[in-house]
Design a binder for these strands. Structure first.
Lengths: 266, 266
DNA sequence: TGGCTCTCTTGATCTGTATCAAGGCGCTGG
DNA sequence: CCAGCGCCTTGATACAGATCAAGAGAGCCA
């Protein structure tokens, strides 16, 4: 295994050779004070906001993006009702978004991994409709929305990309709605694991072996189930040879069986 | 009661005096062929897309909007996987959006009333991620998205409004997620009724008495419950004096109790 | 190194909603 | 006017997952 300061679980896959000069890890070398963002050298640029931009446009975007000191585990990025100023791209680590119900319980509405963008639910009321918290030490890029708005009026590609990003968020929420409404506990858990697996693969990490950044409570909360149920499903899937589960460490032993367990659903 | 061609259930509330010259009803006077849209005279303009526009900008918007012949009950507006070209504003009637799961079941993801916009989930893939169907005879305005995109690059107010519209859709999906994940059958039904009531009020219709445009099956499907459960909840609420239910005709007798029944939740 | 706390697991029991089954109501078309 | 078909209601029963309860690990700090 390569030496790395990256706190993420790094599998021995082919892409690990790149880890050494990857900007995803930078916040932990230099620190604390803000400095210029370089989307250009960020290995996430191919899946993140800059996706559709040429290098001239990219520079404009970089100029408005702010990167600040990493968030510690459990640290709040923004909170429900707080003033909306920016949307955020995850650089490293993992975030959860959640809203608090009137009776004080929490509903996790999404998990966000490096390259993914969160905070767009704050646009409509100029106030965040949910809260976001770091699941582990994480770095994020803040993108001030008013600048982004002005910029996207000038850059058709960026405007389109933003519309698509929001549209994708809607689509994904609808998938979760369907999952909650129609599927069994096993199907829900299987679907989440496959989603994480797919998102890992997109970042050139192992699709079959990873560390869950969130607790069982968070998973249950997200999937509309109790902790106990999550635990039982994991045990059952371990017993049937689909998974190897060691606390937060997950190995998918039988991808096909997992797909089968999920795909009565999505 | 005033004479009206409007097929909607028109209550004897104060605003009914306006019904006579309301464009919401027009599709049923003239017909079939497309003609120029006038957002200007549409009584929905204050809650619909034109919301934030000055009259010069409004004219540009009107020029790209298409209105075609009304949809009959059960007629499809667009379908999952079909090419995405436009988003749609409901002028009259009511629509449902739904997606079909891999095992062929349906998940209703939203109901749309006059003044509300649907179809935005198609932007990300240039293909609709859901289908939309008329719940009753309905008229819609089609807004070609490529024109809308170009226009909104030129009109900051329009761009912002679109972002807000999509953001609101995200927020509402999140509310549904929470509802499905955390609330009992009674809470879900109460919440839906209150939502419909509020949306009626916004259109200056009665908040306490209305006709449900959708079947019990659709309601159950939307709320993640079976028809039988919906029926039982209605019966229970009728027995306890919260509602008067006569098939699709609903009267909210005790607003406060209904709120109480719902608001353990949202 | 021990003790504390937080998270996870497993078992026993309970319950809300699904499922199965039957019948009623109301519209539609002959 | 009646027959037939959707849609809705109501009752009986079954079951998935919640709840309650008790431990077992794992991480953290003194």
């Amino acid at each position: 295994m390569l030496y790395t300061l990256d706190h993420e679980f790094v599998q021995g896959d082919v892409m690990s050779v790149r880890v050494q000069n990857v900007s995803e890890t930078e916040p932990f070398r230099s620190c604390s004070h803000e400095y210029k963002v370089s989307c250009d050298t960020c290995r996430l640029s191919r899946i993140c906001l800059p996706l559709a931009l040429n290098s001239a446009d990219l520079e404009h975007l970089e100029n408005i993006i702010q990167r600040s000191k990493p968030l510690q585990r459990n640290e709040l990025l923004y909170h429900e009702g707080g003033p909306f100023q920016s949307i955020y791209a995850v650089r490293s680590g993992a975030m959860k978004a959640y809203r608090t119900t009137s009776d004080g319980r929490e509903q996790v509405t999404g998990f966000y991994f490096p390259g993914e963008v969160l905070g767009m639910d704050g646009i409509s009321d100029s106030a965040h409709a949910s809260s976001a918290r770091a699941l582990e030490t994480s770095a994020v890029c803040a993108i001030p929305f008013d600048s982004l708005e002005k910029l996207s009026a000038l850059m058709p590609g960026l405007q389109r990309h933003l519309f698509q990003l929001m549209s994708r968020e809607i689509t994904e929420d609808q998938l979760l709605i369907t999952l909650l409404s129609k599927n069994s506990a096993d199907e829900r858990v299987a679907t989440l694991l496959l989603s994480i697996s797919r998102r890992n693969a997109r970042r050139h990490l192992s699709a079959s072996q990873f560390r869950l950044p969130m607790s069982r409570v968070d998973i249950g909360n997200y999937l509309g189930l109790t902790v106990e149920t999550i635990s039982r499903v994991f045990s059952r899937m371990q017993k049937s040879g689909i998974l190897r589960v060691d606390n937060k460490e997950i190995e998918i032993l039988d991808q096909e069986a997992l797909q089968l367990a999920a795909n009565i659903a999505a």
